[in-house]
Design a protein around this nucleic acid. Structure first.
Ligand code: NAD
Ligand code: NAD
Lengths: 212, 212
DNA sequence: ATTAATATGTGAAAAATGTCACGACATTTC
DNA sequence: GAAATGTCGTGACATTTTTCACATATTAAT
């Protein structure tokens, strides 16, 4: 587990940095400063330098960062050299959108299996990803450790239990339900209705600069 | 703009509280403690009490909170008495999933218009939401202030400019692009690939309790 | 009534995160 | 090769957020 000294806030930004470095590299750029990067990812340049510094001295004073080197460093830090296989539970509206999206474009992550309760869907595939019945979780999940959860909220806790039993230790939960899991399992909630509602709240209650 | 003293972290949790209070109310529950609420929404009970306290004394010592009263309070705080109309740009895979989802179930928010560049889609509707051509933004957007952005990343900045010109001041951006907008416009980014990647990173690099 | 139990609201402390500003060094220019 | 410029890495400081822990008020029980 090496040093878990890296602040969580930093860890959440790493994939973002990685993606932009990838872009720059593809554009043939050789060097980049924290200031440039800052403008691209909208994170303060001092924060970026601080973030990078947790990993040691990655840059050169007066020069900036070598794109290729930095990219390589993050590639290994983010384990981008090997494919991470992910499963999806609930191939409905939202689930289907994810299945059709290629996370491989920017990340070495692939959804390789889907599960649903609907027999109409079971046996078919979406963009090459096979859909199994949710009762086959134990046989088919194999050693998949990370799961995207897009089932109806009422099913969330029930499915989560099964996932934990099947050895999953990471769940990206899109249902509005706050699921209960043992402490060795990590859940990240993405609550789209809350995000929308809170944006609306901020607009109504927080002052925004009126100048151009 | 009343008191903008409420911390941002608190503001982001308000819609979550609201939804769970709604659930409780529908279940006929009359009172609730910060401890109960904590277990449901997975937020520390002290944090919940602190959050509520920014709005004054909403509870009663030794009793807890009156569900109906609290719900009513948040309903008006979150402007849930009036419908907030939202537009969506880019009726692709992700956009269509949103159009088919009823945010009205838990929030008084409705997507009422969609825009796309694809003439095959223009003129049709998805679950009753009409799709206009993106060139008609200025005529059709009217006084919509909040927009969900689900276009290809390459189009994001371009569309964002137009939205700003059309008077939009809130954008929920699902594209991987970090868009540039004037300071009177608020953008919330939901970067699904980053979320997935960072979950994977946390699993590999952060210790989790191994006990049950 | 008296006591025990409960649960808020908050001062104070701690933890986490973000920003400033500058010394040190590398690069570039002249 | 000297001077000017650019940019990192970081100590110190600022801000935000979370958590502790308890005085205080209310309810519930006997
Ligand atoms: N679509 C959106 O825009 C949106 C927005 C916010 C939240 N959400 C949440 O995301 C989740 C999915 O939303 P959706 O719109 O895709 O719903 P959906 O109804 O289209 O899809 C749900 C899928 O889950 C399957 N399913 C049902 N029970 C199951 C079970 N026990 N095991 C496995 N699969 C099962 C259904 O067959 C269906 O295919 C919901 O919890 C919803 O609240 C969706
Ligand atoms: N689908 C996912 O799971 C997923 C995951 C992560 C990120 N994203 C991001 O979300 C965005 C949308 O993804 P998607 O999968 O729905 O893509 P998509 O290609 O299915 O949909 C994009 C839609 O935008 C429309 N469009 C193109 N140019 C336009 C323009 N100038 N104005 C208006 N509409 C325009 C297209 O006609 C299409 O309907 C992309 O930026 C993608 O990177 C999607």
């Amino acid at each position: 587990m090496e040093q878990n000294k890296i602040p969580q806030a930093t860890a959440k930004r790493l994939p973002l940095y990685y993606r932009f470095l990838n872009n720059l590299n593809q554009q043939g750029k050789k060097r980049v400063s924290s200031k440039e990067l800052s403008e691209a990812v909208k994170v303060d340049s001092a924060t970026i330098r601080r973030d990078f510094s947790y990993f040691g001295a990655l840059g050169k004073k007066g020069y900036g960062y070598n794109v290729e080197y930095l990219l390589g460093f993050f590639r290994s830090t983010l384990d981008q050299h090997e494919v991470t296989e992910v499963a999806l539970i609930g191939a409905g509206n939202l689930g289907t959108a994810f299945l059709k999206y290629s996370f491989m474009k920017n990340n070495n992550i692939r959804i390789t299996k889907a599960f649903d309760a609907d027999w109409e869907k079971v046996g078919t595939d979406i963009d090459g990803v096979p859909i199994y019945h949710v009762d086959q979780l134990f046989e088919k999940l194999e050693d998949t450790k990370v799961v995207i959860l897009t089932v109806p909220a009422t099913e969330a806790d029930n499915i989560a239990d099964k996932l934990v039993q099947a050895g999953v230790n990471g769940i990206l939960n899109f249902t509005p339900a706050r699921i209960t899991v043992p402490s060795h399992v990590r859940v990240h909630h993405i609550d789209l209705a809350v995000e929308l509602q809170s944006l609306v709240y901020f607009l109504k209650h927080y002052p925004l600069d009126t100048k151009e």
